[in-house]
Write a protein that binds this DNA or RNA. Structure first.
Lengths: 201, 201
DNA sequence: CATCTTAAATGACAACGTGTCATATGTCAA
DNA sequence: TTGACATATGACACGTTGTCATTTAAGATG
């Protein structure tokens, strides 16, 4: 987590810093990003960076968390829009992510093509944060479980794991192969179809 | 790919080098590994390392590829053992991976908890190498597709993508949460059950 | 055997990145 | 004005990387 001094920063300066951070993580993935670049681009002395963040990772996860918050709103919005149909929500979310533009797109691309466990875990919170039971229950309540072939909450949890696995993998494929929106969506829909009806005859 | 000089090395020296590489990548994930450690441990001068490998990644992927080759044999063996039942094969493979011991285990753990797209892509070849059509067809021929709810080869390809996604994700979870073998297998089987019967009512 | 040629080995080095720390500066209350 | 605390600053020690000029080794050839 960013240090208190970061939050104490005058908005203007903080924005400048955030932009520099974002720029760097849009340029290259986490492991290749350099603090030197960030401070140069934000025009702050090197020591200051460490006044605000623990290290590179800290800055990265700050950005990621902001993104996850936006995703959570989006997910609730879509769930509502599709009357709790989680499959439709996933498809719409997928489409939203892969059609992101400009800097956001590059950030996401670097993010998805370098999905370490920690990053994935954090990003997965977009859908529920299934570690925190309370949040999960709240999430489940927005889902129309009538549509789902499950018999208890545990199965719902595993169903979510399956869906997020496949979603992430499909996003990664879309980014890595630079698929067109149409092609990517088509592929993902096909996978969802298979998932819905079951893999076994 | 390693350079020719690597393959020209007398076996003994090559083994020493491979062991040093393996040791380093078992200690820490790719991004944290250091060539300095490798050359120190292999007792070769720094310049020599670059005589054999392009860079860190090159050495890492060499090791990974060796692993993938072993996996491919294993997969064919298991497929045969279970009469082409891909679900049973997956479960057995899952169990094999998470119960790996000692250095291999650490190598795999670092591998799975830091699954970039490239690593995943390479590891995925354990199951077919579904980019090369010929290999894929050979793989498919070993699978009993009678058991599967698919109507053409394209659907089989997507089915494989789904299964490998879920498999990888489950392995990652097992490593990250340090699940016992029993617990991990139980979870994975549950997911396979859901996949088989379908997610939609 | 002497010589030439090509392959491989070696380690010093420049370039770069990281995190720290002693010092300077700013702020606010007493 | 002073003291106390928060923040800013940038030089620096340390570690890592990839290169390259120089040696050394291994054959081949006459």
């Amino acid at each position: 987590m960013p240090k208190i001094t970061f939050y104490n920063l005058p908005i203007e300066k903080r924005e400048k810093l955030i932009n520099a951070v974002k720029q760097e993580f849009s340029r290259v993935p986490l492991t290749q990003a350099s603090i030197s670049n960030i401070v140069k681009s934000a025009r702050i002395p090197r020591g200051s960076f460490y006044q605000y963040f623990e290290d590179k990772e800290d800055a990265f996860f700050y950005l990621l968390e902001e993104r996850v918050k936006r995703n959570q709103s989006e997910v609730y919005f879509l769930l509502n829009k599709y009357n709790g149909d989680i499959f439709e929500m996933m498809i719409a979310f997928f489409e939203k992510v892969i059609t992101e533009q400009d800097e956001n797109r590059n950030f996401l691309k670097n993010l998805f093509l370098n999905m370490t466990y920690e990053v994935e875990h954090e990003f997965g919170r977009s859908f529920n944060g299934y570690e925190a039971n309370q949040q999960f229950i709240q999430f489940e309540s927005k889902v129309n479980t009538e549509l789902l072939h499950i018999s208890n909450q545990e199965e719902f949890k595993y169903l979510m794991k399956i869906l997020t696995s496949v979603l992430l993998r499909s996003i990664i494929e879309a980014f890595s192969k630079e698929l067109s929106k149409e092609e990517a969506v088509r592929n993902f829909k096909l996978e969802i179809t298979l998932l819905k009806r079951g893999l076994k005859k």
